[in-house]
Amino acid sequence: MGRASQSGPMIIADDLGIQFHVNRRRRMKVREFLAKGKTGAPGGQEEFWALRNVSFQIDRGEAVGIIGGNGHGKSTLLRLISGVMIPDEGSAWVKGGSSKVAPLIEVTGGFEGELTVRDNIWLAAGLKGLSRKQIGAKFDEIVEFAEIAHRLDTPFRHLSSGMKAKVGFSVVTSVDRPIVLVDEVLSVGDRAFKNKCFIRMEELLGQGKTVLLVSHSAVQVERFCKRGIYLRDGRLIDDGPVSEVLTRYGRDADKLAEDDRSALRARRRAARMLRNGRGGEEPDDEIALGAPRRRPTAAGAADAERARREADLDD
């Protein structure tokens, strides 16, 4: 798995950076624009770097896991590589251009609820870059993989969300490109389908494709990837053998969770004291329990917890 048939870089991220507004909404109303002038974005002027100073090189046939908590820049990184976002700093170079990339992002994008499943497969496969001839050759395979043969003439909107995801995954993975970006899609569908997805992932790796995988499941990442890239707050923290990087991520996440737990304990204590002082009128405990979730560290803790849970579930 992941052997380099022909070596050489496939992806080079050079000092990559992209900046967002704090609330990720730059959107404003014309009337705000007129009232506040060009610089008066709502919610203040604050911006943050979703990614910055990220540099790495990925060679042909490598399988790399992108590791990090929610909102730390993993998906943004995949978007920059696939060319659907434009960096503010640096560059993301892909050998042969972004048309060599098959992004498994938003797999159900491009499906039209009103049209039948059959029409949708043709359209979506076409949009993802397959020619008519290629679709014709692969149509049966796509249908079979998605287990959708009995619903081919149903309007797409009548499918369940799991079935939609299956069709999407099936279409996207049938697009034959040297680089595959996978963003959390392996968690769609039921268990049987998940296993099929794993097999297809292994096939892709076996064909010597370059794969970038974003997943919260340590088990999944370790199963497919030899190398890990750890992102925290948009910075590249670690890049190396996957087990080492995962250990480091786990340590960080545990530490955050521990910080969070002690903060929670402190708040509970404070609340109890307050309640005792006031004669126990207010349901402080609920408030105290709810509040720390909103702290920035809560995300890390939740991730660590989910990672552990999934690790238990998967094997």
Binding site: S82, P103, E106, G109
Partner: peptide, 9 residues
Amino acid sequence: ARLVRSVDV
């Protein structure tokens, strides 16, 4: 939006 976010054309 979903297509624009996922297809590089």
